[in-house]
């Protein structure tokens, strides 16, 4: 039952993703080809410089034209437009993003995939940490709010949720840096680690030190929302008949709350947690930029500034892939946690 559900979901996800890649390829085809053409010219120029200069101007022109035709054929630029789009889409799906125009990875590679795969773990590290803390705080506070719903603390913290609702996390980051990093000089203003990075245990401590301000900012903005949502989910469940029935059976309140209620709340809460994580995959580009945190988000920023289209495109594709994968995993986990889906209907 569950396996069928999983399979169906994964296949849908893959199909949707492939369609999206095709749409992106179409949309950005012109731009990418422009970049490709100039890259070809660069390559040809480099080749001619390396060669013997014993050729006459006519021979030179002929040679360049020949090389150009060859390369255009290689990159399918001489084929009709649909052919080109399909070829590009297939390239992307096989993770062949081409070469960056200007940027380099820390190892000096210009392969876009290398550059991106370097940045990905850093983004995951930062946001997963922040979201874990958010969820823990959210659970603690949300449960308290649900138990004493309508009380003073509940109302007060709900107001808090609304106050930060429209506050951009990156703006708070700017303030935090301005104050803690530049005025008080307590924390570094960004980056992954100091230069040069220390080794051994000090490396990890240095990492934590650099993570402190961004994580703090994310948590301050984030935990209100998660506590409010958890409060609503749990409160909704606490009003269900089966909770009352369980209490009538004499089950102690602790078990009712942490056993029956929380277990039933697990699917929507996990959904919420994963959705926040997903939102951070794309939504925190600015945030990373402000803190100069060299993750995927920051990569967008830099590639825009430096006008490096291949990196931008590759990043977009990876982000979309991660996002879609996240959505599919979300559905799978939800299905696993909720027996109504996992086990299915009546026999």
């Amino acid at each position: 039952m569950y396996w069928r559900y999983c399979l169906k979901r994964i296949i849908y996800g893959l199909i949707t993703f492939i369609i999206l890649i095709f749409i992106f390829s179409t949309l950005f085809n012109t731009t990418m080809e422009k970049t490709l053409k100039s890259q070809i010219e660069e390559e040809i120029r480099a080749e001619t410089l390396k060669m013997d200069t014993k050729m006459t101007p006519e021979e030179m022109t002929h040679f360049i034209a020949e090389r150009r035709t060859f390369k255009q054929h290689l990159y399918h630029l001489d084929k009709p437009i649909w052919n080109r789009i399909v070829w590009r889409a297939i390239n992307v799906l096989s993770l062949n993003f081409g070469k960056a125009t200007i940027m380099k990875s820390s190892a000096g590679e210009t392969d876009v995939w290398e550059i991106i795969s370097e940045c990905l773990p850093r983004t995951i590290l930062l946001f997963t940490t922040a979201i874990c803390i958010n969820i823990i705080l959210g659970l603690l506070l949300g449960l308290k709010k649900a138990q004493k719903a309508g009380g003073f603390m509940d109302k007060l913290t709900s107001i808090g949720t609304m106050v930060v609702y429209g506050m951009p996390s990156w703006w708070l980051g700017m303030l935090v840096i301005m104050f803690f990093a530049y005025q008080l000089r307590l924390f570094p203003s960004g980056s992954l680690h100091s230069i040069p990075p220390p080794t051994g245990l000090a490396y990890y401590i240095d990492l934590l030190y650099h993570m402190a301000l961004p994580v703090l900012t994310l948590v301050v903005i984030g935990f209100w929302g998660s506590s409010y949502l958890i409060r609503n989910i749990v409160l909704g469940i606490l009003q269900e008949d089966y909770i009352m029935a369980t209490r009538t059976r004499g089950i102690p309140e602790r078990k009712v709350l942490y056993g029956h209620a929380m277990r039933t709340a697990a699917p929507p809460i996990v959904t919420m947690a994963l959705l926040s994580l997903l939102a951070s995959v794309g939504g925190n580009i600015i945030f990373e930029g402000i803190f100069s945190w060299p993750g995927l988000g920051n990569l967008y920023w830099i590639s825009i500034e430096q006008n490096d289209i291949p990196v931008l495109m590759g990043n977009l594709f990876i982000t979309t892939a991660l996002y879609m994968a996240g959505l599919v995993i979300l559905d799978l986990i939800y299905g696993f946690l909720d027996p109504r889906i996992k086990v299915g209907g009546r026999r």
Partner: peptide, 10 residues
């Protein structure tokens, strides 16, 4: 399935 901000930015 579209991650909104990256696409908007691009």
């Amino acid at each position: 399935g579209v991650p909104l901000l990256p696409v908007l930015i691009v």
